[in-house]
C-alpha cells in the first residue's frame, strides 16, 4: 500500500494541509478503494457528532427559516459534478485547451480549480441573495491556496471583498463583487433575463456623474464578467441594456441598475 492511501483518514476529518489535500484528491479520483473508504469513514465520522450534540440558540431556527424562504433550491444536476466543471473549464480557466496538462495531478487540479470557482461564485451569489452585505466565511485557506491563479478567486478571496446586491429593472438578480485593495470589480448575474440578439447588457463605472463604458455581458443564464476599468476614482457601478456592440453613453431609459460603492 503506497503512502498516499494513508491520508484517507485525515482527509475525511478535514485534517489535511492544503498541499496534502490537493495531492490526495488527485489520488482519490483514480482509486476506488480509497473512494470506498472515504464513504465508510464519512459515515463513521458523522456518528462522532453524536458526542458533541448541543442545543442551538432558539432564535437560530427562525432566522434560518427566514433566510431559506428567500433562496431557491438548485435544480438537480443532470450529470456528474466533474462533467459539469469540465464543460465550463474553457470559459472559467484562462489556459487554452490545447495547453491543458495531461498528467493526472495537473488535470485534477485544473478541474478542481474550476469546480471551486463555480462553487465560490455560487456561494457568493447565495450569500449575497440570502444575507446581503459583506461576504464572509465563504473563503478559506484551502480554497485560497488551491485557486490562487484564477483572477476571480483572487478577487473573491480578497480580505476586503464586498458584495453589493441589486435587482435590475428587468428583474435580473445581480451582484457586484468589489475589492478596493485589488482595485477590481466583478459583475455576477444570476438567471439573467434574455435580451434580444441585437441587444446586450453593458457594464459601466461611474466617476461621480460621469459614466464610463465597460465590458459587455450577454443576456440569459448565469454570467460573470470583470469590469475592465480599475476602481480609481470610481464611485458607482451600473448596468444598462444597449444595442449589440455597446454604447459610449448610456441612455437614461436603458439603465437597469445603479449601485453606489461604499467609501
Amino acid at each position: 500500500m503506497s503512502e498516499i492511501h494513508g491520508a484517507v483518514g485525515s482527509y475525511v476529518v478535514n485534517a489535511l494541509d492544503p498541499d496534502g489535500l490537493e495531492e490526495f484528491e488527485a489520488h482519490l479520483a483514480v482509486c476506488p478503494s480509497c473512494t470506498r473508504e472515504v464513504q465508510e469513514f464519512t459515515e463513521t465520522a458523522a456518528e462522532l457528532s453524536l458526542l458533541a450534540s448541543a442545543t442551538p440558540p432558539p432564535a437560530l431556527g427562525g432566522s434560518i427559516l427566514a433566510a431559506i424562504s428567500e433562496v431557491r433550491p438548485l435544480p438537480p444536476k443532470p450529470s456528474a459534478e466533474i462533467a459539469l466543471a469540465e464543460a465550463k473549464a474553457p470559459e472559467a480557466v484562462s489556459a487554452p485547451a490545447a495547453k491543458r496538462p495531461v498528467d493526472e495531478l495537473a488535470l485534477r487540479r485544473q478541474q478542481r480549480r474550476t469546480r471551486i470557482l463555480s462553487v465560490l461564485v455560487a456561494a457568493v451569489v447565495a450569500a449575497a441573495l440570502a444575507l446581503g452585505g459583506v461576504v464572509y466565511g465563504l473563503v478559506n485557506a484551502r480554497q485560497a491556496q488551491v485557486a490562487q491563479q484564477a483572477a476571480e478567486t483572487e478577487l473573491l478571496t480578497a480580505p476586503d471583498v464586498k458584495t453589493y446586491v441589486a435587482t435590475m429593472k428587468d428583474g435580473g438578480q445581480v451582484s457586484f463583487v468589489v475589492s478596493k485593495s485589488l482595485n477590481r470589480a466583478m459583475f455576477i448575474g444570476k438567471d439573467l433575463p434574455a435580451v434580444g440578439t441585437d441587444q446586450t447588457y453593458q457594464l459601466w463605472t461611474l466617476e461621480g456623474q460621469r459614466p464610463i463604458p465597460d465590458n459587455l455581458v450577454a443576456g440569459g443564464g448565469d454570467r460573470q464578467e470583470f469590469f475592465r476599468e480599475t476602481l480609481s476614482g470610481v464611485t458607482g457601478l451600473a448596468v444598462s441594456v444597449e444595442a449589440a456592440g455597446g454604447a459610449q453613453q448610456p441612455n437614461p431609459s436603458t439603465i437597469q441598475v445603479v449601485t453606489e460603492l461604499a467609501a
Binding site: A67, L74, K77, A126
Partner: peptide
C-alpha cells in the same frame, strides 16, 4: 451561529 446559518442555507440550496 453564523456557520450554522451558512450550512443550512447551503443544505436547502443543494437539497436536490
Amino acid at each position: 451561529a453564523e456557520v450554522m446559518q451558512e450550512v443550512y442555507v447551503e443544505v436547502w440550496r443543494q437539497s436536490a
